[in-house]
Design a protein around this nucleic acid. Structure first.
Lengths: 336, 336
DNA sequence: CCGGGTCTTTACAACGTTGTACACAACGTT
DNA sequence: AACGTTGTGTACAACGTTGTAAAGACCCGG
């Protein structure tokens, strides 16, 4: 056990509360007393017990970010942004992984470790809006992600439909006529996949191009192998596509890999564009065109919301914010 | 504020302690009482206050992993392993980013949030063995990484010298004669870079090949652009290398990118091998040969150490363990 | 040298939980 | 009928901290 405030008080010959006052920078402490206390503090290497401070009703200065999968570059890069910016708020950010399942997400939301953090940012994958609304825990919460527009919670999102449309528009502008989509999730409604599919369809419609269901390949987990498998399936079609919009960058990289192995040129034979804007895409061979979402903004907006909740209490109206995205055309569509 | 144990007791018409006994599964509670309490528990949606429980001397069931940079794929993948396996220990794992600086690392080690977690796993970059030994905080600690063999702390590491030698041996076995190394850190002694450089030199010596200082390129931050820049520098040499050992995969990918842009064939003109075994390398074009460290084992060993510390107390001798690595030859050295 | 203000320090209670020690039944034994 | 035993339940204190309220020290003008 480390030294407690009591030990420090005894050593400095003052009351416990005076030590507390010094530790917390309370203004009315004489210089002489302060010095005495400071010395005792150092000598005993005092560290406030956060448990006690917390119990007393205080704050821990810690907020948590829960993501489905930390090994996914998108979430890893997003988390890094959060860590950086949380520091500017004076918060320590801890990252938690829900592993994409309902259980993990529920655990976080229901506050298994509530009381340990001042606030919570969650990127939900599995839970429905309904389940989210049923949440009882009182810890301030901000949601990330596209779904759940109707949940009574602050949330930060991007316009997935517009993003997907921009990606598809880009392929159309290049003169492609058979544009495939990788990453649909037919059994899940209202999720990211559904929105991106909608944007894809909207772009086709706007260009008066036919929609061909064979060119839409579902994917379960959005990793590189899923893109690889999907691309392979597309290449086995009687009439393969001349462009592919992948619903995330990781699958796009899998697709690029499959194209190369089968001897197709990118972008001459098939152009590829992804979604997310992960660093990996910039260095891939060929570099990956993508819809880059502004992770810095996402973090900024989410933390501002959280700040408001934590400081202002639970009363304020739930708010919603959109982070911008940007089309980054690179070699996988432009060549060169 | 949520309901406290006191509210539950009142509602169930029993004492506070009886509620506590029910919550903690204390054996001697009659079925009737237990049922009454359970109902009150559910009705009030009771959640134990971790702060109070912690203050009382208990555990939080939470351990933290601190890595220098969560956006780096190696650490992201490593963290994912830790999350998974911590769950098997019944722990929730939280991830913390130190941002590679002394300040961040000190903050973690000195227990800014000690008392909030039962244990700590830290992958130090900046702090010296000396600074680590001076640590006062009592939270059980396990270190990851190669340095600090002499710090009086449990730690898990890999044999970097042997790994680097295996990588270089592989290039030698392919008949390469001018083998470069990317990632030295001349100003830092005893770190990962120094060990990998030693392994590289050992392999050359064993093969009776000359050591050429011009072929060793330093790198500061081990990211893709560092590898890119280093490779560019190597290609500008009067006699460029015919093989490169990069001290991590990220730099190897940067190097591959530079080679491609300059029109060099891999591996015909230059063979490339990395270190770490990140998923990205497997899907790169060409796929990256690497020394894959066993992240699963690292997590397993570290958590076992931590378990021992947390359960067994601080008395045991500090232990050291080595996680295995594996040479994965792929296209960037073998071709195909 | 007193009254009234300002500045400094203190005692006490409370936060929610659990370990300790004990009270009280109900039971079967002598 | 007195006895220990076993099973249930309770009161109390303590963990380390900080907010509240109030006491004490000091200074100034009258």
């Amino acid at each position: 056990m480390g030294a407690s405030i009591r030990d420090v008080a005894q050593r400095a010959g003052v009351s416990v509360k005076t030590v507390s006052n010094v530790v917390n920078g309370f203004p009315f402490v004489s210089d002489a007393t302060r010095a005495k206390v400071q010395q005792a503090l150092t000598e005993l290497d005092y560290r406030p017990n956060l448990g006690a401070r917390l119990l007393r009703g205080g704050r821990t200065g810690t907020v948590a970010l829960a993501v489905p999968e930390i090994s996914s570059p998108y979430f890893a890069e997003l988390a890094a942004q959060f860590v950086q910016q949380a520091k500017q708020h004076g918060w320590t950010l801890l990252i938690d992984e829900t592993q994409g399942g309902k259980d993990g997400e529920r655990l976080v939301l229901d506050g298994i470790k509530s009381h340990l953090v001042d606030g919570l940012i969650v990127s939900p994958l599995a839970l429905t809006a309904q389940e989210l609304s049923a949440r009882r825990d009182r810890t301030p919460l901000v949601l990330l992600g596209e779904r759940l527009i109707h949940a009574p919670v602050d949330h930060v999102t991007i316009d997935n439909v517009a993003g997907a449309k921009a990606a598809t528009d880009h392929l159309i502008a290049l003169g492609r006529t058979r544009i495939a989509a990788i990453g649909s999730q037919p059994h899940i409604s209202g999720g990211t996949a559904a929105l991106r599919l909608r944007g894809y369809k909207a772009a086709l419609r706007a260009a008066k191009m036919p929609f061909d269901g064979d060119l839409v390949i579902p994917a379960k987990s959005y990793h590189r192998p899923d893109g690889y498998a999907a691309m392979t399936a597309l290449l086995d079609l009687p009439r393969p596509p001349d462009a592919v919009f992948c619903f995330n960058d990781l699958m796009a990289i899998g697709a690029l890999r499959a194209l190369h192995e089968r001897g197709h040129r990118v972008p001459e034979d098939v152009a590829v564009i992804g979604f997310d804007g992960i660093e990996e895409g910039d260095f891939y061979q060929p570099s990956l065109s993508t819809i880059a979402v502004d992770k810095t903004q996402i973090a900024r907006l989410a933390l501002d919301f959280l700040r408001r909740r934590i400081d202002g209490g639970a009363t304020a109206e739930p708010q919603e914010a959109f982070a911008p995205f940007e089309l980054l055309p690179r070699q996988s569509t432009l060549g060169g």
